Simulated assay, not measured.
Amino acid sequence: MTGHQGRSPRTDRADGVEDVTLLILEWLGEQGVNAMIRVDAERAADNAPAWTFAANGGPLEHGMRADGRTVEQCMSIALSQLRKAGLSVPF
């Protein structure tokens, strides 16, 4: 990587789902669920939802996918789908 790239830490914001995304992924792995989150630069350039969450396996009967314009939107949708599928995500 080439360094800072204009990003700054968000220490003054209220904690949101984006702050616990890695903890959610780790917890899902402990439950036997394969999960990932990714950003697609081409979709972002086209002003399309660039963030994707995908999960399958473990207690999930079917694979699932959630897309959003921000990581917060994507993970909020994903958490809702996971809870509807019967996973009580503790975050």
Rank of each mutant, 00 (worst) to 15 (best):
G3V: 02
H4I: 14
Q5Y: 12
Q5G: 05
G6N: 11
R7A: 12
R7S: 14
S8E: 15
P9C: 02
R10I: 01
R10M: 10
T11H: 11
T11K: 11
T11E: 09
T11Q: 11
D12P: 00
R13N: 07
R13L: 11
A14H: 09
D15Y: 09
G16N: 05
G16M: 02
V17A: 09
E18K: 00
D19R: 10
D19H: 12
V20I: 13
L22K: 11
L23G: 09
L23T: 10
L25D: 07
L25T: 03
W27Q: 08
L28E: 03
L28S: 06
Q31L: 08
G32E: 08
G32H: 06
V33F: 08
V33K: 11
N34D: 15
A35Y: 00
A35M: 01
M36K: 12
M36E: 14
I37V: 15
I37G: 10
R38F: 07
R38V: 05
R38T: 12
R38C: 09
V39S: 13
E42M: 09
D46E: 14
N47D: 15
A48E: 15
A48H: 09
A48F: 04
P49F: 01
A50L: 03
A50S: 15
W51L: 03
W51Y: 13
T52V: 05
T52C: 07
F53Q: 10
A55P: 08
N56I: 00
N56A: 13
G58H: 03
G58Y: 02
P59D: 04
P59H: 08
P59Q: 08
L60S: 07
L60C: 07
L60M: 07
H62P: 00
G63M: 02
G63E: 06
M64F: 04
R65V: 13
R65Q: 13
R65N: 01
R65S: 08
A66P: 05
D67N: 13
D67T: 14
G68K: 06
G68P: 05
G68A: 07
R69F: 13
R69D: 14
R69Q: 11
T70N: 04
T70Y: 03
T70G: 03
V71T: 10
E72R: 09
E72M: 05
S76C: 08
S76P: 03
A78H: 03
A78K: 02
A78D: 04
L79F: 02
S80W: 05
S80G: 14
Q81F: 06
Q81Y: 08
Q81N: 11
R83W: 12
R83M: 13
K84E: 15
K84L: 13
A85C: 07
A85N: 04
A85P: 05
G86L: 06
L87S: 10
L87N: 08
L87H: 03
S88D: 15
S88M: 14
P90S: 03
P90T: 01
F91N: 06
F91E: 09
